[in-house]
Design a protein around this nucleic acid. Sequence first.
DNA 1: ATCTTCCATCGTATATTTACGATAGAAGAT
DNA 2: ATCTTCTATCGTAAATATACGATGGAAGAT
Lengths: 108, 108
Amino acid sequence: MMQDEQLSLTLRALGHPVRLEILRILMARADSCCCNDVTDCLSLAQSTVSQHLKVLLDAGIIERKAQGTRNNYCVRTDRLEAFGTSVARYLEQLGNQAICEKSLASAS
Amino acid sequence: MMQDEQLSLTLRALGHPVRLEILRILMARADSCCCNDVTDCLSLAQSTVSQHLKVLLDAGIIERKAQGTRNNYCVRTDRLEAFGTSVARYLEQLGNQAICEKSLASAS
DNA sequence: ATCTTCCATCGTATATTTACGATAGAAGAT
DNA sequence: ATCTTCTATCGTAAATATACGATGGAAGAT
């Protein structure tokens, strides 16, 4: 199922506490912010933060915009919303499946 | 933040297409099912499926019940629901953070 | 007792992830 | 032109994840 590939990719991208925190940092700013700004909020090397940003970028969760000498990142809230919807739908379908099967079982 | 550890653990556990599928398989049965049943539905070795089940088990998403010679697994729907809630709350808080910051910015 | 079934675990191989320091190149400042 | 700042990328090391076959031990069947 192709949908699962995309969903699991996003789940994995969010499956690290540092990346959950990075999204918070990015969102808690009216102005978009750069790698250094994020690094200042975390006790991690700049290269490590850059790597985490890349994971989020590759998963389509954040966006990069070159701005002079710096790269600004911002969260793609539309994608996050879509993710929330996908999770909800997945869980819902799991539940429906169960209900469906159970009624079949009790009918037989 | 300790909450993030738990959430990211669950996100990672769900962050593999095979495991998303395994949960579907487990849910699509009125009777709980064993490792072999799951393996029959997938083109993977039994040991691999067992490993995936262990990841889900360690994350508290499924439950194991010894039943004679076989081990039956079933989904802990309460945990899945809690996960759904956690995701929703995380996303919501991200959004609120942004709104809060933006209104502060426009007020200054 | 013997046989079969079930399956967690071990050993192994490969790939990916996570972290760091070092570095190079781009852009702006002096 | 030179200097500084920013940061993606490379190289590296250690840890995890993913897959497989083989195996041993538990439980039920013959």
